[in-house]
Design a protein around this nucleic acid. Structure first.
Ligand SMILES: NC(=O)c1ccc[n+]([C@@H]2O[C@H](COP(=O)([O-])OP(=O)(O)OC[C@H]3O[C@@H](n4cnc5c(N)ncnc54)[C@H](O)[C@@H]3O)[C@@H](O)[C@H]2O)c1
Ligand SMILES: NC(=O)c1ccc[n+]([C@@H]2O[C@H](COP(=O)([O-])OP(=O)(O)OC[C@H]3O[C@@H](n4cnc5c(N)ncnc54)[C@H](O)[C@@H]3O)[C@@H](O)[C@H]2O)c1
Lengths: 233, 233
DNA sequence: AAGAGTTTGTGAACGCGTTAACAAAATCGA
DNA sequence: TCGATTTTGTTAACGCGTTCACAAACTCTT
């Protein structure tokens, strides 16, 4: 018998779920939604894993951290599993997000319709530029930076997005934390330091392309090597 | 003596660099640029590691995959190391990129000035919508999907970005591959299947926020638990 | 009721990435 | 020149994540 999980009254587990698993649960959720739309009521780990693009063993191991929601010899009930993952991910409620920096990227994020089906709602937009403040972007009026504290407090927002230039990122992070934000998604190419208890995730689109460029270079030089070899042979 | 690395004429190494290391090299590059701008000529692994936000041992281990570019008792020459990493990453040349899907996100990416300093150049924009084709976005005229093949061939583009809705992602990926693209950055919330030899990286912004929401939920329930305990005590 | 077939949940092995620790190699002062 | 000091490059231990493989648990057929 394992004592790693301690069940709670609401059915959720207190045991930490590995980071790698947490990052995949939304993928499973999406796969389950796709199956549900196709009218599939039940599925085996093989099918769900294929939909999600992962190894079936990995899928089963991931799900085992949540509990035992399948039936041996049968598989998983699509709707039931979907609900269990959604609950574990906190998707039974909507999470309000404030975006700081309403430039090209901030505007694109505000306009994105796909967040709502994933339990994310862009609740407020903030910018330092007086020219932008007061303008309406995707139906939301852009607020000045000064009002960050009230916005976060009034709407009980806990997640902030930094979409300002890198030079402003640290200052914005500090203001977000001071306002009560405890989770930050940072798009600026800059390291932000935050106190313990505040989560920061960074998305660096330049690096993604640089990694691809690296692999392209390797492919190119490998081609060259084999061509050279062929020429020598 | 180690035989893991086989030096080449141009000084590059043929040995595979671990994925985790490749993903950090651009971070080191950025840190070195920052130091160079401050007029720092030389630095120890400690200082560079702090700038980059990583463990010094990790930094040294990462750099050791490239070669032995430091001096014991002294540290690293900022400019020399910067060049070595840039060369390893393929940043001695510019990499042209084609963006497919010039909507909110595609437009934001096209407008981004930060790519150029990282060796990335948005060379072409493609969209399926006749309304968008022919319009000029960030100084680039949007081309129809039909012209993808010529664009990729003429400009010798090897990297493609998918910024279309998820439903179009697989089809777009196939057209990119058919056109000769061998690296894809996919922003659509969909799995794309590609032949061997084609690299795909996926950026899923919804998932980033969902992961933060998960941790928020855990913080909230942990608070609740401790409050409960305090109340019981 | 029992046996054949199916599929989950998990123990165990493996591999990759991280980190600590230290020998090797350089500088510096006497 | 030599010993003290600094800092790299690397080895070894550790931990996390992935994957295999299989017993346990379920269904279905006879
Ligand atoms: N646009 C992209 O595709 C892209 C790609 C990669 C990285 N990024 C990064 O994302 C961030 C945003 O990029 P962008 O293209 O939207 O930039 P942008 O210049 O279009 O917008 C930045 C916005 O931030 C606001 N701002 C500046 N300082 C501020 C402060 N202290 N507080 C609040 N708001 C402030 C500006 O007024 C502006 O509206 C940048 O850090 C950029 O490096 C963007
Ligand atoms: N905007 C965001 O902040 C955001 C956030 C997360 C994820 N995404 C994802 O990024 C992708 C793009 O998002 P967006 O907000 O820019 O969408 P969008 O609707 O604004 O733009 C999509 C563009 O793709 C074009 N398109 C459609 N089918 C095409 C095809 N077959 N070939 C070429 N072009 C085609 C459309 O004409 C349109 O211009 C989507 O998959 C979305 O889910 C966007």
């Amino acid at each position: 018998m394992t004592l790693l999980r301690s069940p709670r009254l609401d059915g959720s587990t207190s045991r930490d779920i590995p980071d790698a698993t947490v990052a995949r649960l939304p993928v499973y959720l999406r796969a389950l939604n796709a199956l549900a739309e196709q009218g599939v009521m039940s599925c085996a780990s093989n099918e769900l894993a294929e939909q999600a693009g992962v190894n079936p063993a990995k899928l089963r191991k991931d799900l085992s951290y949540l509990g035992s929601y399948g039936t041996r010899g049968v598989g998983y009930d699509v709707e039931y599993l979907r609900y269990q993952i959604a609950r574990e991910m906190g998707q039974t409620q909507d999470w309000d997000v404030v975006i700081v920096g309403v430039g090209n990227l901030g505007s694109a994020l505000s306009a994105y319709q796909g967040f709502s089906t994933r339990g994310i709602r862009v609740a407020a937009l903030v910018d330092a530029d007086p020219q932008r403040v007061g303008t309406v972007v995707s139906g939301i009026t852009v607020s000045p930076l000064d009002e960050l504290d009230e916005i976060v407090a009034d709407r009980d927002i806990s997640i902030g997005v930094i979409a300002t230039p890198g030079t402003a990122a640290q200052e914005v992070a500090e203001r977000l934390v001071a306002a009560g934000i405890t989770s930050i998604l940072n798009f600026a190419p800059a390291l932000v330091q935050v106190p313990d208890g505040v989560d920061v995730r960074k998305v660096d689109l330049s690096i993604e392309l640089q990694i691809l460029a690296y692999h392209e270079q390797r492919k190119a030089s490998a081609d060259k090597t084999s061509t050279d070899k062929a020429a020598t042979a």
